[in-house]
């Protein structure tokens, strides 16, 4: 079951996805944290961010929309308050980071590079909920430039998380690899919206938000397959994984590992179940 991604050794290929697992403490007692392949923490930024106005989440058919707006307490709080707990769990901790500029990403990478408890860094260049003109992940040159600059600042395993809101995801994945990223993870959420027909108003205060959950699985799977057959570096697949069977589909599509997101909200112990199912499947192969 063991795999490696960059320098990180994982005892199984199942990780908890960023933004859906808090800083792990929230799941204490609901899932055996030691069993996880890795934990990707909620995206942090240099300075604290208050996040978006309410409502921030709404359910849609077999999925949900969110526009949290990267609410977090900033990197220093993360290192002081959250990392000590996370490093004691005994599984690789991958820290998701985001910023408003390349400088901010580099600053975060440099700061985290010093921390022993951090196994890897995931670049969230694809959060659709922060106001900017287009995402870095929608432009192959911007992706290349960012990943390259961050690469120079850290020797930790570097993962670039891709957005599905692009015409050709393969070219973005290739740019990230060329810049020296150790792996790519995909997909982040699909930009979507919902309207309350009684009030005529959007159901999220942010108007649009990111769609996740089972509703996106077939598209996410197709994208993972496309990327995996076109790059040599490991692909971490996600999007709507609820069961071990879903995870196995992603592995069959070429992903080396998977991340579980929205499912954690519905069944906080789901990662353990998925790990068991994947283990069983690997044995029978």
């Amino acid at each position: 079951m063991g795999i490696s991604i960059g320098k990180i050794k994982l005892k199984n290929p199942v990780m908890a996805a960023s933004g859906t697992f808090g800083y792990a403490k929230e799941f204490e007692g609901l899932v055996d944290l030691k069993k996880l392949g890795a934990i990707v923490t909620k995206t942090i930024t240099i300075k604290p961010r208050p996040g978006n106005p309410m409502p921030r989440v709404c359910e849609t058919a077999s999925g949900m929309l969110n526009a949290i707006g990267l609410q977090n307490e900033g990197v220093e709080d993360f290192i002081e308050e959250k990392l000590p707990y996370l490093s004691k769990i005994g599984v690789p901790i991958i820290v998701s980071i985001s910023g408003d500029s390349i400088k901010e990403f580099c600053g975060l990478a440099k700061r985290l590079d010093k921390e022993k408890g951090v196994a890897g860094i995931e670049l969230n260049i694809s959060c659709p909920n922060i106001k900017r003109q287009g995402l870095i992940a929608q432009d192959k040159n911007a992706t290349y430039e960012l990943a390259k600059k961050v690469r120079e600042k850290t020797s930790k395993t570097l993962i670039t998380k891709l957005s599905p809101n692009v015409t050709d995801i393969v070219e973005i994945a290739k740019a990230a690899c060329k810049a020296g990223t150790d792996a790519v993870s995909l997909v982040n959420t699909f930009l979507g919206m919902a309207i309350d027909i009684e009030t005529g108003k959007p159901r999220l205060a942010n108007i649009t938000g990111g769609l996740s959950g089972p509703a996106i699985k077939p598209i996410a799977l197709r994208m993972v397959w496309e990327v995996a057959r076109n790059i040599k570096k490991p692909v971490i697949g996600m999007g709507g994984i609820m069961t071990a069977d879903d995870a196995i589909e992603f592995l069959l599509a070429g992903a080396k590992a998977v991340q579980v997101g929205t499912a954690n909200f519905i069944e906080p112990g789901v990662c353990e179940k998925i790990i068991k199912g994947v283990e069983k499947w690997k044995k029978t192969r």
Binding site: G19, F21, G22
Partner: peptide
């Protein structure tokens, strides 16, 4: 508030 998780993991239910 609208809630996704109910235990502090999603940050969806801000007040």
């Amino acid at each position: 508030e609208e809630m996704a998780c109910g235990f502090g993991a999603c940050m969806g239910c801000a007040v």
